[in-house]
């Protein structure tokens, strides 16, 4: 066994088939269910400060996407996973640019138009 970093296919876990991988899925479904239930509670309750609800939902959604990436897709910070993580990082960059850029431009469209 040499310990040089090797590449790993996205979706494959380091441990290979076995108990630890099953545990990852169980932790994943538990956390995801918790975050989903919290999201639906946050959206329907009247206990919380209304203007903050949308931000809270966004945070919960991003957290749940992270849970899915780590526990279902086995994207980790390990050296054998660098390529997969860099691809995700690039994807996140483009998604952020498209969404934030579109909203920013469209929200200021009237003000920026020629008279």
């Amino acid at each position: 066994m040499d310990d040089t970093p090797r590449d790993r296919a996205p979706g494959d876990s380091r441990e290979g088939p076995g108990q630890s991988e099953l545990r990852a899925y169980l932790i994943g479904i538990g956390l995801a269910a918790l975050l989903t239930a919290t999201s639906f509670w946050v959206a329907t309750t009247s206990v919380l400060w209304a203007p903050g609800v949308a931000v809270g939902l966004a945070v919960l959604a991003i957290a749940q996407m992270g849970v899915h990436l780590v526990f279902f897709l086995h994207v980790t910070t390990g050296p054998d996973n660098t390529n997969n993580v860099l691809a995700v990082a690039f994807g996140v960059l483009i998604v952020g640019l498209v969404v934030a850029g579109s909203l920013w431009i469209m929200a200021h469209l009237n003000a920026n138009m020629m008279p």
């Binding site: 296919a9 996205p10 494959d12 997969n84």
Partner: peptide, 8 residues
């Protein structure tokens, strides 16, 4: 790995 990464 190649196929998985391509699909990724």
């Amino acid at each position: 790995i190649v196929v998985g990464y391509g699909f990724w």
